[in-house]
């Protein structure tokens, strides 16, 4: 790891001003992606701004019909939160399946969302649940937030403070983990609220997380695993590597969607 200046602000305003002072500063939330990246010298920020002591970024609460999760909430907290488990059990289960127990004790929802790794689990949940990302400057709909692999709508000096999830009627997340890395080769989050159905796919595309319009249309007709059969999944821009071809991943999208719908129906 290359040398950097370490900053430990206590307010979001101080974070913003620290970001303004250092060129190439990076925000450190749980560090479970940033630190490995820095150790491999794939990132060499001039300054690391630690969010660990910043007030107002923690906590999980139910606000009206939404579950609001602080950006610094660890995966383990979301996984075990009574509030989340009761309102959106699929989200708690997703958080409980990220990495391993020690990683879940450090990794945060804000960090995962801001990083937008193409194989990360959380982005699929945000898209499929129609979540809103709250920053120090504005509120951003998940559909506008994720803009391709490792790319988001966040601007310079903009910090995620919380994520707000509308409570769905039914939801489930199913992933096919890579047998070695355990990252999702394909992960599918489905949700249903009234007549609206959303299907978000992570792990598969070179463009990062995306909503599968064809699958959504089919499932709006009938929210049933059978509805997925015969729906073509366009894998032309899917990831192809030693773990699986683009076609293989396209097929996985169908299979994971069927499983997720079955799970969402409680079967």
């Amino acid at each position: 790891m290359y040398a950097f200046a370490y900053q430990r602000p206590t307010t979001v305003r101080q974070v913003q001003s620290a970001l303004g002072k250092h060129e190439d500063a990076k925000i450190l939330a749980g560090g479970q992606t940033l630190l490995p990246t820095m150790k491999q010298r794939l990132a060499s920020p001039s300054a690391v701004i630690d969010l660990g002591h910043v007030a107002g970024l923690s906590g999980i609460e139910k606000k009206g019909r939404n579950i609001v999760i602080g950006a610094m909430a660890r995966h383990a907290e979301v996984a075990t939160s009574e509030v989340v488990r009761e309102a959106i059990p699929a989200l708690a289960a997703l958080a409980g399946g990220i990495g391993d127990p020690a990683v879940r004790n450090r990794g945060t929802i804000g960090g995962s969302v801001a990083n937008n790794d193409p194989s990360a689990d959380y982005p699929a949940a945000l898209l499929a649940l129609g979540a809103t990302i709250v920053t120090n400057k504005r509120k951003i709909a998940a559909d506008d937030f994720f803009q391709g692999m490792f790319t988001t709508a966040l601007e310079e000096g903009e910090i995620i403070t919380k994520v707000s999830f509308p409570v769905p009627a039914k939801a489930a997340y199913v992933k096919f983990p890579n047998p070695a890395s355990r990252y999702a080769m394909v992960g599918v989050f489905v949700s249903k609220k009234g007549s609206d159905v959303k299907v978000a796919v992570t792990g598969a595309s070179n463009e990062g997380v995306f909503r599968a319009a064809g699958l959504e249309a089919a499932l709006k007709g009938k929210f049933n695993p059978k509805a997925v059969e015969g729906v073509a999944v366009d894998g032309s821009n899917f990831i192809a590597d030693i773990h699986g071809s683009a076609d293989y991943r396209a097929n996985l999208v169908s299979v994971m969607t069927k499983r997720a719908v079955t799970k969402a129906l409680g079967k």
């Binding site: 370490y6 430990r8 450190l28 560090g31 479970q32 630190l35 490995p36 690391v48 630690d50 660990g52 383990a76 127990p101 020690a102 990683v103 004790n105 450090r106």
Partner: peptide
């Protein structure tokens, strides 16, 4: 809480 000390800064 169990954490991986190779992926944690002492400063934090």
């Amino acid at each position: 809480k169990a954490i991986k000390s190779c992926t944690t800064l002492a400063a934090t």
